[in-house]
Amino acid sequence: MRLQAGQRFAAGEKTAVIAKNLRVSVRSVERWRRAWREGGMEALRSAGPANNPTVTDEQFAVLEEELGKGPSAYGFDDDRWTLARVQTVTRRRLRMSRPVTTVWRLLEVPPVCGRC
C-alpha cells in the first residue's frame, strides 16, 4: 500500500485523494510522503514487524533445555506445560516478552482438533 502511495506521490497526487483511495488516514499518508521525500521508494518498503524480534537457534536451544527441566523447576504446581507457562520461561530465561499466540507458533503446536 505504501509503495502504491509512493507512485502516486511521484505523479503529484494530493494527500487527501491518496488517503481516500487507499482507505487509510491522511496522517498515515503524510507520514509516508515524508519518508518518501527523505528516502525515496526504498524508504516505503516494509522492514517487517518492529516489535516481534525472532528467536535465534541458540535461544531456541536454551528454551528447549529449560523446558526439559519440567514445570516444577519453575515453581509450577503440576507437570503440565501450558502456553502461558512457556511464555513465563521465555520471559525469565531469554528476557523476551512474547504474546501467547507467538509462543504457540514458536513451538509449532499441532491443532488439537482432528478435523483442523
Rank of each mutant, 00 (worst) to 15 (best):
A11M: 10
E65M: 04
A50Y: 06
E108P: 01
M41Q: 15
R91A: 14
S28R: 10
Q7V: 10
P111A: 05
V26T: 15
G75Q: 08
F76V: 12
P53W: 08
M96T: 01
P110G: 07
F76C: 14
M41D: 14
A47T: 13
A73T: 06
E65G: 11
Y74E: 06
E13Q: 12
E58Y: 12
T56H: 15
R34L: 09
S97Q: 01
Q59I: 02
F9V: 04
V55G: 11
N21C: 10
F9K: 07
N52M: 11
E58V: 13
P49Q: 11
L3M: 13
M96D: 01
L106Y: 09
E66C: 10
P110M: 03
R8E: 06
R91M: 11
D79W: 08
M1N: 08
T82D: 01
S25G: 15
G68L: 06
R23H: 15
M1T: 06
N21K: 13
R23V: 14
W36M: 02
N52I: 04
T15H: 07
F9Q: 05
R93F: 00
V109G: 00
D77F: 09
V17H: 05
A19R: 08
K14W: 03
L67V: 12
R37E: 14
G114S: 12
E42K: 14
R98V: 00
P99F: 01
G6V: 06
A11G: 08
N52Y: 04
V26L: 15
G114I: 06
E108H: 04
V55R: 10
S25Y: 11
